[in-house]
Structures are given as structure tokens and as C-alpha cells.
């Protein structure tokens, strides 16, 4: 598969554990900081509203959202579920370690709204070195692969 914009630097393939099965592709949104869904996002739009986070002001909708792990309140699942209900959820998520809070939100999204958002964790290489915001990423959370097409430089 060649993503839109034909000039790519090259393809990197990362393997990981499948938390929620599915396939997705899109532009990467990457942060090394733990991410707080509760009170940190506007679920109607997907906008990140946590003033203390480096992604403040950006939008997660349709992105391949890559962050180390979640933080904050245990209501995280329904914040994710509401983004799914509103059509503002990321296309996929990749973590170092996916907490049950995130997994539950995505599972509920599938059971209630029939929306499948693949989630993977335990990548076999340093994802923060291999993937930058803006890279084109293809997730296959059946096979456990993350394909990265570096953005044109």
C-alpha cells in the first residue's frame, strides 16, 4: 500500500500486541507524555483541551493516536466511548501499555455503536523514535503490525 502523497522516505514495520483487533490507517499523532482523556478532551470534537499537555489545541479525530499510557480518573472509558458516539475518536491507538480503562472504552464502542478502533501495545521497538506526528501509519491489529511511512522531508 502506498499512502497519498507519493514521496515517502521508506517503510518501517513495528510489531506489537493486539488489544482490540481491527485495521486502520491515517496520520500519526504522537506524544511521549501520558495522556488524560477525562477532562482532557472535548468528546464532541476530538480536540485536546488539557492545557498542561503538549498536544493542547490539537485534534485526535481520525488520527493514529500514539501515547505511552493513560492517566487521570477512572472515567476514561466513557470519555473514549463518547468520542466514538460523536464520531470524533482516533482511528486507532498505540501505547506502550494499554490500561483496562482504554481497552474498556473501545470494547464498549464496538458493542454499543459497532465502531471498531484497533488498539495495540507492547511495540517491539521505540515507537517514539520511529514514528513522528504527521507520519502515515497503517495498523493491522489482527496480525499485530504497525507500518510507518515516514512523512516527506
Amino acid at each position: 500500500m502506498q499512502p497519498r502523497g507519493s514521496k515517502v522516505k521508506g517503510k518501517v514495520v513495528i510489531r506489537g500486541r493486539c488489544i482490540v483487533k481491527g485495521e486502520a490507517m491515517g496520520e500519526a499523532l504522537v506524544t511521549k507524555q501520558p495522556f488524560m482523556f477525562p477532562h482532557g478532551i472535548n468528546p464532541e470534537t476530538g480536540e485536546i483541551i488539557d492545557k498542561r499537555h503538549e498536544l493542547f489545541g490539537l485534534n485526535m479525530k481520525g488520527k493514529i493516536f500514539i501515547f505511552p499510557y493513560g492517566k487521570g480518573s477512572t472515567t476514561g472509558s466513557t470519555w473514549i466511548l463518547e468520542t466514538i458516539r460523536c464520531g470524533s475518536a482516533p482511528a486507532a491507538m498505540v501505547n506502550l501499555e494499554t490500561e483496562p480503562i482504554i481497552a474498556t472504552g473501545v470494547i464498549l464502542g464496538e458493542l454499543l455503536y459497532g465502531v471498531r478502533i484497533p488498539v495495540m501495545d507492547h511495540p517491539d521497538t521505540d515507537i517514539f523514535q520511529k514514528i513522528e506526528t504527521g507520519d502515515h501509519v497503517k495498523i493491522d491489529a489482527y496480525k499485530g503490525t504497525i507500518e510507518v511511512y515516514k512523512k516527506f522531508m
Partner: peptide, 10 residues
């Protein structure tokens, strides 16, 4: 405030 409409539906 945290469960939203999706939480009510659930």
C-alpha cells in the same frame, strides 16, 4: 459529567 450521553445509553 464524565459518562456523557454514551454512558446514559450504556
Amino acid at each position: 459529567g464524565s459518562l456523557h450521553d454514551a454512558g446514559v445509553e450504556m
